[in-house]
């Protein structure tokens, strides 16, 4: 058990280092630079060079890379060129909003997936089960920005039910109303993907003999679904939910930019446009850490759910 955790940790740290390294060099490889974002597109080369020197961007890239790691080990994530703020402070402000949005969406999606998946597994080959399958593919394939814009057009502009963007500041009601459309938009594709996966899982469980013996004993369909099928199908599902975290963040970047929702995704999008290296690197690292923690958590939940002692 201990060796397993150690091995997982080692793999995680290695992948984090790789991730950050790739992002660091990729973002520096793109033309332009933060100096142009600060001084404007028509800044004189001399002014750009001076600013770059001041920000430490004139040093060789390898040296910058080493310095970045040196600072990171000291707990310094750098200073945003554009926002004129330490990146740690930015993370403090933006992370909570993103976690609220992403975790609501992931939790809601997981719940929907469990219900839809069990129904789908139960219906199996029946027409209704196939209809559910078609909807899953459609909702999974619909791009977040398309759904987002459609919802804004219908529910905000036409029907005036929800605010089209922002986060709201005045009380819980306003905050929830601002959260509704982004959460729904982000939930849709995740729920579609997860429920398709779980529906498949549940269907395979429903084919197994223990379900037939449960039926033969006269247990009700609800009892069989919740007490037997769910119990067996939920463990791979937990792993799957953990593995969805990066996909959720990809959707989050799009959702936050469509709804102008100031979270990490929105910040990443803005910072990438402005080539704000420290901010982009820090968010990437942070999301990487969150993903790994999420997967570890999924494994932990699974080891608690696993009643079987490994014997083979």
């Amino acid at each position: 058990m201990f060796a397993m955790i150690l091995r997982r940790l080692l793999v995680s740290v290695t992948s984090l280092v790789l991730l950050v390294t790739i992002v660091f060099f990729m973002i520096h490889a793109t033309p332009g630079g933060p100096a142009y974002s600060i001084l404007g597109m028509h800044a004189s080369p001399a002014a750009v060079a001076a600013l770059n020197k001041q920000m430490g961007l004139s040093q060789p890239l390898g040296e910058q890379y080493v310095i970045w790691w040196w600072h990171l080990l000291q707990g310094r994530l750098g200073y945003s060129y554009i926002q004129h703020t330490p990146v740690t402070r930015l993370l403090r402000i933006y992370t909570g909003r993103t976690l609220l949005l992403d975790l609501s969406a992931l939790g809601l999606a997981a719940l929907i997936a469990l219900v839809v998946g069990l129904v789908q597994g139960y219906l199996a080959e029946r027409p209704l089960g196939k209809v559910i399958g078609v909807f899953q593919i459609v909702f999974y394939a619909l791009p977040v920005f398309f759904v987002g814009i459609l919802l804004i057009y219908i529910l905000s502009i036409r029907l005036n039910l929800f605010p089209p963007g922002g986060i709201g500041h005045h009380g819980l009601d306003s905050r929830l109303r601002h959260l509704a459309l982004p959460v729904f938009t982000l939930t849709l594709p995740i729920a579609a993907g997860l429920s398709r996966y779980f529906g498949h899982q549940a269907r395979q469980e429903y084919r197994l003999d223990y379900v037939r013996t449960a039926r033969a004993r006269g247990l009700s369909d609800l009892r069989i679904a919740l007490h037997h099928v769910l119990r067996n199908a939920v463990r791979p599902f937990v792993t799957m939910v953990g593995m969805m975290i990066p996909a959720v963040f990809v959707g989050d970047v799009l959702t936050e930019s469509v709804f102008n929702y100031p979270g990490l995704g929105w910040l990443l999008w803005r910072s990438a446009l402005d080539q704000d290296y420290p901010t982009v690197s820090a968010i990437t690292l942070f999301i990487g850490v969150l993903t790994i923690l999420g997967n570890l958590l999924a494994d932990l939940i699974n080891s608690i759910l696993d009643v079987r002692v490994r014997y083979e």
Binding site: D209, V307, R308
Partner: peptide, 24 residues
């Protein structure tokens, strides 16, 4: 019919390895 069946019939099937729920 389900209740009637449950109280008057028992069933045993071919594969004992999968006939029991592994998690209970």
């Amino acid at each position: 019919w389900r209740r009637r069946r449950a109280e008057s019939m028992g069933a045993v099937f071919q594969n004992p390895l999968t006939a029991l729920n592994p998690t209970l």
